[in-house]
Design a binder for these strands. Structure first.
Lengths: 243, 243
DNA sequence: ATCGGCGCAAGAGCACTGCTCTCGTTTCTG
DNA sequence: CAGAAACGAGAGCAGTGCTCTTGCGCCGAT
């Protein structure tokens, strides 16, 4: 396994990338259902059967695009978190959420590919679960930081059912040790709800309902942060004395 | 336009219904993307071209199924609201949310058709907006009732941006006069977030994350009710004195 | 009661699709 | 250097949505 494996491997990886690029182009233009292997091959100047040397089926090509999309939105979330110029948990939370939404609005078809209806007969392989978790981990790390800084209020929710408690304790043990169980539960809910907001906007459910999309999203995301128990520095004292 | 328009019209409506039934069957089995006009026609013992007498294109058949699905989930929400044996707003809210989730779990492909990624190149006609609003109106009416009964707390959210305020005031004027603007805003957000929860469960995003699906959903939905400001009767006094 | 017109099903056909198989050619490897 | 593996090209299969033409049968007006 040397670093340079000859012209063949190089050509192979280049062609694979070219196929994915062209496929992503067609995906952005026409959507996942209309993604055609033949059209991709035609655009690349090769014959359709040659493409099967690189992707054994159309679904495998879709899987590659799905993994890429998960990684893209995950990277967007992570860089938003890393480049946030504030240590206010609410600000950081908002930055990550906004980054995810911005990515979704810029890549609607790729968003639909990963957070919309799964393509029928296609079951995502386990390769996708790790990239799929990056956004959730970014959100989780905000709560972990806030908890460490004492800027985390106990979410104003009902006591957790026992089964939910064991679920979130298992998650917390793996990804955020020490995080209170109600916080973790609220975090998982907020994670799903965030994509409800984005999906509704992107898929047209907000048409003729919400016009001020940016402002509404920002407002709703502040609500999510509050639901999780993130607090701005100035209100941290008030929270701790209140709780 | 007599009530009985002869055998021709009767046969036409019967065949139209049979086509939709068979299509719904295939939809439930294989999903929207694999819905094939030829397969439907084959199953019904006719030739594919004959089907175009009833639906001018595959998309029109899909539209019919979409409208039916919106009406089905809307009816589920409305009957859940009508048959709720309590006037506790939180209970009624939970009943409607649970009804929507139950319908979604029972009809995953139809759910994906209306709340998942839109099929590419297909734009929902305006016929769908009224059925699509039924669930939202059911949720809205709960808040309206609660407001009339003094069981509505001001949602614990930040002040509304001006643009969001005008948005929700327009909605409230049309569907729920007198409802406080922050409540309406929280309601719209909760509406979208509800489908985020359901979609994540249905589309596999909760796999290996949330196992106790029922309990988690119930817990999250209670959080949504709290976020909207719905209160149980016993805590109504405490809320009004607090606000 | 008859007849013209319209709705209808049938079939052929077009341009696609995903996918498989075979056949030479090129490239890497033992 | 020879065998093996990878590769591109092409033909072909079964299926798709959709269009067009061809007749048949029902329906209402004469």
């Amino acid at each position: 396994m040397s670093a340079i494996r000859g012209a063949r491997e190089r050509a192979r990886s280049e062609i694979t990338a070219a196929i994915k690029d062209e496929a992503r182009l067609q995906l952005a233009r026409d959507g996942a259902a209309k993604l055609s292997l033949r059209a991709v091959a035609r655009e690349l100047g090769m014959v359709s059967s040659a493409l099967y040397r690189y992707f054994p089926s159309r679904d495998d090509l879709l899987t590659a695009l799905i993994v890429d999309a998960y990684n893209a939105v995950g990277a967007a979330a992570e860089t938003a978190l890393a480049t946030a110029d504030s240590d206010d948990p609410t600000v950081r939370w908002t930055a990550v959420c906004r980054a995810v939404r911005t990515w979704a609005l810029a890549h609607p078809h790729e968003y639909a590919l990963i957070y919309g209806s799964p393509v029928p007969g296609y079951t995502a392989p386990l390769t996708t679960v790790e990239p799929a978790g990056r956004v959730a981990l970014a959100l989780l790390s905000i709560a972990r930081e806030a908890h460490a800084d004492g800027r985390l209020a106990v979410p104003p929710v009902d006591p957790l059912p026992r089964t939910v408690h064991t679920d979130v304790e298992r998650l917390a043990a793996e990804f955020a040790p020490g995080l209170p169980a109600p916080t973790t539960a609220a975090l998982v809910a907020a994670w799903a709800q965030l994509f409800g907001l984005i999906g509704f906007e992107l898929f047209g459910q907000f048409n003729q309902v919400v016009e001020a999309r940016d402002a509404f999203f920002a407002h709703a995301v502040r609500g999510l942060a509050h639901q999780v128990g993130l607090t701005t520095p100035q209100e941290a004292d008030a929270v701790t004395t209140r709780g």
